[in-house]
């Protein structure tokens, strides 16, 4: 089982290296600054460490019912932390188990769940195969630039979309605190910890940005997200210790 999953994970790791080397070389060929590309790599590596540990916890959480190799494969390739547990649970129920439990798991149920988990989330890849080239060409075509300056707006639109994404999550923490948990609607019975973590993380980020902009410490930018996250996550442990 480890071998089956390991081969696929290794294949994907090699694909990542190939894409990375090609992009780096193409960047040099079109005259991009080497330092910028190295900063991108450093910033992305530090950025990814903590979420990766979070994903590892997802592997551990699922390993109780599905063993270790399958969750390892699923969360290394194509999977998503918020998706895997829900789909594995739903698939287990749909094939007649009372839930995702090791006690009820049979070999047939296991392989069926593994197939359903792949079937449900593979569509982004399928669409990429069939539509990526046309879709990106259309977005970058001169025609779209003529229609009301849409190309010039592209950069702002991407930032706005990201702001929308973050707003949805922060809104869910606010809603969860005010109307979630045992308190019910407007009962303030939900957990305020995620909201506190958001605030601490934002405050630490403000300090990092201040250091980068006012104290000319540009190097902190590469570590600012990871640093903010560590401090905010540590705060969550401390707050929880005090509260309980």
């Amino acid at each position: 089982m480890y071998l089956i999953c390991g081969v696929i994970v290794l294949f994907v790791a090699i694909v990542c290296v190939i894409f990375m080397v090609r992009a780096y070389r193409a960047g040099l060929a079109i005259g991009m600054d080497r330092t910028k590309m190295k900063r991108t790599i450093t910033a992305s590596a530090t950025f990814a460490v903590l979420p990766s540990v979070g994903i590892l916890l997802g592997v551990i959480a699922l390993s109780g019912s599905l063993g270790t190799p399958l969750p390892w494969l699923r969360l290394s390739v194509i999977g998503a932390l918020h998706y895997e547990t829900q789909v594995a649970q739903g698939a287990a129920e749909a094939i007649g188990l009372s839930g995702l439990s090791a006690a009820e798991m049979t070999a047939e149920a296991f392989t069926t769940i593994a197939l359903v988990m792949s079937l449900c989330i593979m569509w982004g890849m399928v669409f990429s195969i069939f539509f990526n080239k046309k879709y990106l060409k259309r977005l970058g075509s001169p025609k779209s630039a003529k229609t009301g300056g849409a190309a010039g707006f592209g950069d702002t639109a991407m930032t706005a979309m990201f702001i929308g994404l973050v707003s949805a999550y922060i809104g869910s923490y606010i809603g969860g605190f005010i109307s979630g948990g045992s308190g019910g609607l407007l009962g303030f019975g939900g957990s305020w910890l995620p909201l506190a973590v958001v605030l601490v993380s934002g405050a630490v980020m403000a300090v990092f940005i201040w250091l980068a902009e006012k104290k000319k410490a540009a190097w902190v930018e590469s570590f600012s997200i990871a640093g903010s996250m560590i401090i905010a996550m540590a705060t969550a442990v401390i707050i929880n210790g005090f509260v309980s």
């Binding site: 590892l56 910890l193 958001v198 993380s201 403000a206 997200i225 442990v237």
Partner: peptide, 26 residues
């Protein structure tokens, strides 16, 4: 990783990420 004392940290990876990103973009 499964120490109960550390669970609040790992339960809040996404809020920690979006808190920092929110300040940066908002």
């Amino acid at each position: 990783l499964q120490d109960p004392a550390l669970q609040p940290a790992f339960d809040n990876v996404v809020p920690a990420l979006f808190g920092a990103m929110a300040y940066k973009y908002f």
